[in-house]
């Protein structure tokens, strides 16, 4: 009976060893990670576009996002804004903006200012005629500094009160992106 035990043990040892030379696992291509959120504000009457960017190449790793705002905004100016979402962990970078656009009915950006220095309105529509927020119009109206919070919600209640006007409080859904840019209007 001891013999059986040995045979079984050796069989398993053999099995264990044969599996030992496993190949190295392959790295995962992170498909949905958003590493870069970029808002480009182009002045209506010409001039250099202003780029607001938050970049976090390690995704949910410990490195903080690097936030850059290329310049100050001009008061009483109308800017057309364009949102871009990128996954830069892959090369060439993945345009996540396109996915959001394709599934526009299930996504919406919200733009909130901590100080009343500008008005922001949506400049695009999904298939149901509700805003997405990939294109916006920003009109500065007062001098000052403010935080601009940009939030992307997945599956928001687009028909809830105020949501189409950009009020996030009733929107619900799940947050995919939330970044805060310090801006200055001079």
């Amino acid at each position: 009976m001891k013999k059986y035990t040995y045979i079984l043990l050796f069989a398993i040892l053999g099995l264990a060893n044969s599996c030992d030379d496993q190949d190295d696992p392959i790295p995962v291509n992170e498909e949905e990670v958003i590493t870069t959120v970029r808002l480009t504000l182009t002045p209506k009457d010409g001039g250099t576009p202003i780029v607001l960017e938050s970049r976090d190449l390690d995704g949910i790793g410990p490195d903080e996002p690097i936030i850059t705002v290329s310049s100050t905004l001009e008061v009483s100016q109308v800017y057309s804004g364009n949102m871009e979402l990128l996954n830069e962990t892959v090369s060439p970078a993945d345009q996540i903006t396109e996915e959001v656009e394709e599934e526009g009915a299930e996504h919406q950006f919200f733009f909130q200012l901590s100080q009343d220095v500008a008005d922001i309105s949506y400049d695009d529509e999904d298939v149901n005629g509700n805003p997405i927020g990939l294109s916006i119009v920003l009109e500065t109206k007062a001098v000052g500094t403010s935080n601009l919070t940009i939030t992307l919600r997945h599956e928001p209640e687009k028909t809830a009160a105020g949501v189409a006007e950009g009020d996030i409080s009733q929107a619900g859904g799940e947050t995919d992106v939330q970044v805060v840019f310090p801006i200055e209007v001079i």
Binding site: L9, I12, L15, A16, P25, V28, E30, E32
Partner: peptide, 27 residues
């Protein structure tokens, strides 16, 4: 009694999400 165990865990990389639990072998 005696016990001998061998265990292998293989997470599928096609998920497109970094592995929560890695590939491992346990004896």
């Amino acid at each position: 009694g005696l016990r001998f165990g061998y265990q292998q865990n293989v997470p599928d990389p096609d998920t497109g999400v970094r592995r929560l639990i890695p590939d491992y072998q346990k004896i």
